[in-house]
Design a protein around this nucleic acid. Structure first.
Length: 748
RNA sequence: UGGGGUAUCGCCAAGCGGUAAGGCACUAGUUUUUGGUACUGGUAUUCGGGGGUUCGAAUCCCUCUACCCCAUCCA
């Protein structure tokens, strides 16, 4: 955990500290209707991570309230994902379906309270009655059935006496609620469907909004963490628990932004389309952002965990760059994985002046990876290098083999090109080269400097392997559908050549193919006869090696002009107030705010009765009082207009600074105390005496020599820093004007 | 259009009235038998825009703008 906490942990910590809960319990509650993807991984990391961090528990719960979509194969995949990521759920896996009897009882309780009713309108009519975002809805005519009737109907629903869709159970909330979700939400629907766990026991199934909050409550969950799109559902969540009287300790819902990654899709629907449309090879296709896909591609659980940790948790919709994910896996594998040599695009090189053969000892790990292990590399006259490592007409800055430029065969000798053999089409098919016998790695006395050391394999002992090279699945950053697919997302190389030790010794399943990237022995298709490797991710490439893709020119961004919308005109009354206030000396902005807000202007005028200091009163009213009045009515305030006037009086008389006034205001707002008493009891009278302030300033200056330097070098912002420090030393009581002057003088 | 959210560097993201954290990406240099790694630097005079309050505002107030979510018997 980094030192800066995310907002969820901040909430959890506060709740623990305040004693709201003794212990934190979270849950990861997927619906088992599809394969988990990296978005689930984020949720898993959050829920299990928080539970771990605060010594709590996290449940794994299958939210299986819709029997027509769910299947046990998905619960297996979900369990696998959590396990693979290294988390342990508390006790056994939970199922919402296990709570069906309890949830049913709660429904009956609601009916008995007159808070739920059986509605028999059909789907279409119900939609119409629901209204629109701007128009209130209308209650169904069935809403006033008696409790007995509702109970009887609901019982029959449960017993399967009706067909699907004939009736539903609804909460009786408010058909004109601004929040559409609160317009008498459905609690139960009839579904004559086989449930993969509950079998055919139930003819009715609870809706998400009813089942989820109750399941959380039943499990003793404290923090019900979900994604942003459930924000509107929070009201129902609270309504159900509150109405049923399910009080403390009870769960509260908190929402975070779901994960988006560019160049891929994350929705179950789109993923399903790709799988069913055959654009990819199943749910574990290595190009997919599914857990199964990453696993098969060769990603480590640690890298996914680190990724989730690195992207943070917040409430802003965001799209994370794949580069961040790629960094995570490179960073992880770099420390762990043996390096071997593989030639993806073999080009034959015959070393004309070399005879015989030898074996060269080569470490599996570079000098900066503290791991042991090595293998023998066969070397002989005929070898293969990668086609990309030779250029007949090299671009500027090319480091590898050219007709003019020698190169080192990694761990072996330096060679230079003598002759290029081409086929009838002009394609290079072979290089005749010469080696420098005294240039062998470790015993090089040739004195030749080369710019690069390249990978190679010896021709007779190299093994042929299949390599699957993956590129991003989509060619656009925010793909919509199949039309955005990258046609080259999979490249199969059938005849790559690899050094024999990899196949014979099998020192690992993940490798770095030197200078190429990280690769993974495909867990499904790999056989001894046909070894298959998946490319996990390429090595980071810098500067000239990837020059092919020139950077798009820096956008000549015109300073964006933002057009202001139209402000609603003032009414006649408001205009009159506005005029009156400006005449009192208020600036137009303040007068405007006051005039347009009846509560504020009322409060302002009342304060004015106590003290005739319109400007200062207006300022505190339009700022601090306004903040409180946003969510409260005047009579709910702990302080009175008279008290505000008294507060202003002290500011007017320079008894306290405006900074202290804010502090006093907070106090008044909290407990309704009298401002003068607060100032007296806390000794908040302003300090303006230089004799007191000056020593403080000198002390601060002495303690911060570096900042003094920076200030003198021209960083004038630091004045604020010093003022802040001095003010802190006076516990806010210093007269800021005086402090400012004195600090400025001392510093110069 | 009513309601609920969100806006800080190319991408994430801290920050909660007193010096604009950090990571990715980018970039320059050092080391390097991987154009990798590691290391050392450079990258926001400014926080969606405009006003206001304050000695001092990314943080408080007003206002405008943009984007996301909500009218499934899905979750």
């Amino acid at each position: 955990m980094s030192e800066s906490k995310d907002f969820l942990r901040t909430i959890v910590e506060a709740d623990l500290k305040s004693g709201k809960y003794k212990e934190v319990t979270t849950r990861f509650p997927p619906e088992p209707n599809g394969f988990p993807h990296i978005g689930h991984a984020k949720s898993i990391c959050i829920n299990f991570g928080i539970a771990n961090d605060y010594n709590g528990h996290c449940n794994l719960r299958m939210d299986d309230t819709n029997p027509t979509k769910e299947d046990t194969k998905y619960v297996e995949a979900l369990k696998d994902a959590v396990e693979w990521l290294g988390f342990e759920w508390d006790k056994s896996v939970r199922y919402t379906s296990d709570y069906f009897p309890k949830i049913h009882e709660y429904a009956i309780a609601l009916i008995k309270m007159g808070k739920a009713y059986v509605d028999s309108t059909n789907e279409e009519e119900m939609r119409e009655l629901r209204g629109t975002v701007t128009e209130a809805g209308k209650r169904s005519k069935y809403a006033n059935r008696s409790v007995e009737e509702n109970l009887e109907l609901f019982e029959k629903m449960k017993n399967g006496e009706f067909k699907d869709g004939e009736h539903v159970l609804r909460a009786k909330i408010d058909m004109s609620a601004a929040n559409m979700k609160m317009r008498d939400p459905l609690l139960y629907r009839i579904k004559h469907a086989h449930h993969f766990r509950a079998g055919d026991e139930w003819a009715i199934y609870p809706m998400y909004d009813f089942a989820h909050c109750l399941s959380d409550y039943i499990e003793g969950v404290t923090h019900s963490i979900c994604t942003l799109e459930f924000e509107n559902n929070r009201d129902i969540y609270n309504w159900v628990l509150d109405t049923l009287g399910l009080t403390s300790p009870r769960p509260y819902q908190h929402e975070f932004a779901r994960l988006g990654i560019n160049y891929t899709v994350m929705s179950k629907r789109k993923l399903l389309e790709l799988v069913e449309g055959g654009q990819v090879n199943g749910w574990d296709d290595p190009r997919l952002p599914t857990i199964a896909g990453y696993k098969r591609r060769g990603y480590t659980a640690e890298s996914i965990l680190n990724f989730c940790d690195g992207i943070g948790i917040a409430k802003a919709n965001s799209m994370v760059d794949v580069a961040q994910l790629e960094f995570s896996i490179r960073d992880d594998l770099n420390k762990k994985v043996p390096r071997v040599m593989c030639v993806l695009d073999p080009l034959k090189v015959t070393i004309v002046n070399y005879e015989g053969s030898e074996e060269i000892e080569a470490s599996y790990y570079p000098h900066d990876v503290p791991k042991e292990g090595s293998r023998k590399l066969p070397f002989a006259k005929e070898i293969y290098i990668d086609g990309a490592d030779f250029e007949e007409n090299p671009p500027k800055g090319y480091f590898r083999l050219t007709p003019e430029q020698a190169v080192r065969l990694k761990y072996a000798y330096i060679i230079k090109c003598k002759e290029i053999i081409k086929d009838t089409n002009g394609n290079i098919v072979e290089i005749k080269a010469e080696y420098y016998p005294n240039s062998k790695s470790g015993e090089d006395s040739s004195g030749i400097k080369v710019k690069s050391a390249i990978q190679w394999v010896e021709s007779t002992q190299a093994k042929k392997i299949e390599v699957r090279v993956y590129d991003r699945l989509f060619k656009t950053e925010a793909p919509e559908g199949v039309e955005d697919l990258n046609p080259n997302s999979l490249q199969v190389i059938k005849n790559a050549l690899i050094e024999p030790a990899v196949i014979n010794q099998k020192p690992d399943v993940r490798f770095q193919f030197e200078r190429e990237g990280y690769f993974y022995a495909d867990p499904i298709d790999y056989t001894d006869e046909n070894p298959v490797f998946n490319k996990i991710v390429g090595l980071k490439e810098s500067s000239s090696k990837k020059k092919k893709a020139p950077k798009p020119a820096p956008k000549a961004e015109a300073k964006k002009v933002q057009i202001d919308g139209e402000v609603v005109a003032m009414s006649k009354e408001e205009q009159a107030l506005f005029d009156k206030y400006t005449q009192l000396g208020l600036n137009s902005e303040v007068a405007n705010t006051l005039a347009r807000d009846a509560k504020l202007s009322h409060f302002f005028e009342e304060a004015l009765l106590t003290r005739n200091s319109p400007v200062n009163i207006a300022n505190i009213v339009t700022n601090d009082v306004a903040r409180e009045l946003k969510q409260k009515e005047i009579n709910e305030l702990k302080f009175s207009a008279k008290q505000i006037a008294e507060l202003v009086e002290m500011v007017d008389n320079e008894l306290i600074s405006s900074k202290i006034a804010k502090q006093v205001f907070e106090e008044m707002n909290k407990n309704g105390a009298n401002p003068k008493e607060i100032v007296e009891s806390k000794g908040l009278i302003q300090i303006s005496d230089p004799a007191i302030i000056l020593p403080l300033i000198e002390e601060i200056i002495a303690k911060n020599p570096e900042n003094v330097e920076k200030f003198k070098a021209g960083n004038t912002k630091l004045l604020g820093f010093f003022v802040g420090q001095v003010l802190k030393a006076t516990r806010g009581k210093g007269n800021p004007k005086v402090v400012n002057e004195l600090v400025a003088r001392e510093l110069n």
